[in-house]
Every structure is written in structure tokens, then in C-alpha cells.
Design a protein around this nucleic acid. Structure first.
Lengths: 210, 210
DNA sequence: GTCATGTTTGATCGTTAGATCAGACACTTG
DNA sequence: CAAGTGTCTGATCTAACGATCAAACATGAC
């Protein structure tokens, strides 16, 4: 009865449902993604969703947990590969890695943006559980660099939304980008060029203009 | 029977429904905004929505038309106040104006982002009808400045999503910003500071770093 | 082979969605 | 004041939603 998957078959379907849920929740919204559509993509029937997860809200939370766990692991792994590198270079490479992760997992910012437009319990949970650690880490790193005189200080709110906005928007809006510009933003070349631009922009924040 | 409002009362309710629809469509998604909720905010009953508009899809299109008409008029008016100003300064001030408009009307990018995450008829219509003119105008302007050697050339797709992403994201995600940072991004001081940052960043695109 | 437990399904419940329609109301015109 | 047109509402239709449940199925343990 309980939804604790223990046998291999259960874990596989749980994962399939989770992946389908992430895709649909991020592309359409929470309301726009029906549990029937999610089950359909996962290749199972609709009641099975309620067997593996207590309800739609819990499925949404589980999908978010899964995604942010992947983000955390990916950033952590990148950081560990940078032992001994100076903090400015480390920060640049982490921003670059973040842009690349956002390209490989556009669901991340789609899910966040979906909920960030309107206050509510899902936004509160998302911010308190997953977004705030990311934010405070970013602000702390840039704060240290600014204190060391390596970049110019920018207020946290501006900084955070400049990074995420400039870095992730084109991948969030990839379908629009394709129709509007004819360019597929998910090609390795585009992702790399975009990451270069973002890093170039960010780490010269306000040096005086001409 | 036809939904052509002629008497003053009809025009007022039509406007009320349109405003409510814009708020709800942009905050929740197309699916998440029910015609009953829209009617409720507008202070009318649900069948009246179908009286003034042929259906939910047409209401959505009418709300988008209205919003983009306001954007176009606002940009045009700003441009006319800049006769005789050189093109580089004009471009900077227009970007600034665009950021300010995005702050005053966060529904704009919320509506666009809502649809841009997934291909579909609404995205196609939105891009072909409203977004493309904005995009081509932007690309043409920056192209001329680059050709004149006043800024460094950046590929159109990167450029467009850097501007809109860096400039509008914080206002799109204002509820998250408030909970995450404690800062209200809609204060005149924040909007002005953010516009300054975006202009500073954009118009020094890749001058060499230190 | 039987049993127990975890997994999956078909049928179905109550609710809410967008849409429709007949009729009530309000205002303008003659 | 009477006729006509535009505006609005209550009642209601069908479809789709999330959720529930009994029953079927599959798998590993004994």
C-alpha cells in the first residue's frame, strides 16, 4: 500500500514518472500538466502516479528535489575539480558550469520561473528549500571577490538576477528562440559562446565605460 | 449577440476583463487562469467573458494585443523624444526605457515566457505577430552600431536574450525576489539601478578584460 | 507450489473547467 | 411609452481533472 518502492520494477517506473513530471511541469505549468499526461509520457496509467506519490503536489516536490539534487551534485563535482585554483578563476568557471547546466537542464529555470511569478506555497517551499542556498552561495562568493578588489561590488539582488537572467533565459525560452531566430541554442557551440559572453559581461561589472 | 461593444458600459467591462485576463494569464499560465477567476477579478460573471470574447483563446490573444500595443506606443513615444540624438545614445536610452517598461508591466515578459517554454499555436502566433518586430528592430539597431565600430558585434540570438534576460528577469520573478532577497524590485531606485547595470553591461560587450 | 508483498490496472467518484442558451435588464431611439 | 438593441445573468451541458478502490498481476520467500 505505501508508496515505498523496493522492487526494481517499482523504482524504474518511479523514475519514469519523475522524468515525465519534470518535463511537463516545467514546460506547461503545475496546472497545465495533468497527471494523465504525465502518466502517458511515462508509459503507465494515471492511478499509478497516485500510487508512487501521495498526490500531484508531492509529485511536483519530488521532481524539484530530484532536479536540485542533480544541480548540487554537478556544481559540487565541478568545484572539487578546481582545488588549488584561485577564487576569481574558480568563480568564472563555476558561472560557466552553471550556464552549461542550465542548457543541459532547461527544466531547472523553467520550473523556478513557473512558480516565481506568483506568491504561493509552492514558491515559498521552492525558495526556502532549494533556491536560497544557491543564492547565498553566489552572493558570498561575489562578495569576497569584491572585498578583495577583484571585481566591483554589485548589490546581491541585482547580481543574482543578472546572472540567472542573462545565463539561463535563452535556454528557458529555447522554443521561442528557434522560431524567432532560427538558431538552436542547445548546440555545444552556442552554449559555449553564450557562457563566454555571460562570464565576460559579469566579471567586468562596472569598470568605467569609454 | 455579436461581441462588438458600442455602449459605454460594454467598453468598460471589456477593459476590466482584459486587465484581469492579462494579470491572471501572465501570473498563472493559460491553463492555470480560469475564465471564472478572470471574471471574478473583473467583477462580472463568467458567461460575460464569452459574450465579449469569442472564447478563452481569443481573450488571451486580445490581452496580448493590448499589452504589445502599449509597449509599441511607449517605445515610439520615447523614440520621438530623442530626435537629433546620436544613435549610440539613443540605443542606450531605449534599452533603459525598455527595462523601465518591463518593470512597470511585468506581465509582458511573464506572458511571453509562459508560452516560450513549449512550441504550440500560441507561441507561433505570439512570435509572428508581436515578438519578431521587436527582435528585428533590436538586431538592426545593434547591427548598425557594430558596423560603425561603436560597439562590438554579437550574434543576434545571444544579444536579444542577453538584453531581455538581464533586463526583465528580476521583474518577471518579483515575488521570488521579495522572498529570496527581501528587496522589492519595483521601487524606482531599484528599477533605475537595474537599468543602469544592464546598459553598462550591454554597451561594453566585449572590450577586452583587464 | 503456496503464500505474502509489492506493483499495476479498470472503473468510477466528486469537482471544476469552458461553453451555451434562454431570458432578464438597461438604455437609446422614435 | 413602446420598440429595439446592446448588455448581463442563472442554469446547465459535456469534458477533463485529481483522487480512490477493489481486484488482478508479478515477484521473491519459504
Amino acid at each position: 500500500m505505501a508508496a515505498i518502492a523496493s522492487r526494481p520494477a517499482g523504482l524504474e517506473t518511479r523514475r519514469a514518472i519523475l522524468d515525465a513530471a519534470l518535463d511537463l511541469f516545467s514546460a506547461r505549468s503545475f496546472d497545465g500538466a495533468s497527471t494523465r499526461a504525465i502518466a502517458g509520457i511515462a508509459g503507465v496509467t494515471q492511478p499509478l502516479v497516485n500510487y508512487h506519490f501521495a498526490g500531484k503536489e508531492e509529485l511536483w516536490r519530488a521532481a524539484a528535489d530530484d532536479l536540485f539534487a542533480r544541480l548540487g551534485a554537478s556544481m559540487q563535482q565541478r568545484l572539487e575539480g578546481l582545488r588549488g585554483v584561485d577564487e576569481l578563476t574558480t568563480a568564472k568557471l563555476l558561472v560557466r558550469h552553471f550556464v552549461e547546466f542550465s542548457a543541459a537542464n532547461p527544466q531547472l529555470h523553467r520550473l523556478i520561473m513557473q512558480e516565481s511569478k506568483q506568491a504561493g506555497v509552492r514558491l515559498d517551499w521552492l525558495v526556502d528549500t532549494h533556491v536560497r542556498p544557491l543564492y547565498e552561495n553566489t552572493v558570498a562568493t561575489f562578495g569576497r571577490l569584491a572585498a578583495a578588489g577583484q571585481i566591483v561590488a554589485v548589490a546581491p539582488a541585482h547580481l543574482y538576477y543578472l546572472i540567472t537572467g542573462a545565463g539561463a533565459t535563452v535556454f528557458v525560452m529555447a522554443p521561442e528562440c528557434v522560431r524567432l531566430t532560427g538558431v538552436d541554442p542547445f548546440t555545444p557551440e552556442f552554449v559555449s559562446a553564450h557562457a563566454d559572453l555571460v562570464v565576460d559581461l559579469l566579471f567586468r561589472i562596472p569598470t568605467d565605460p569609454s
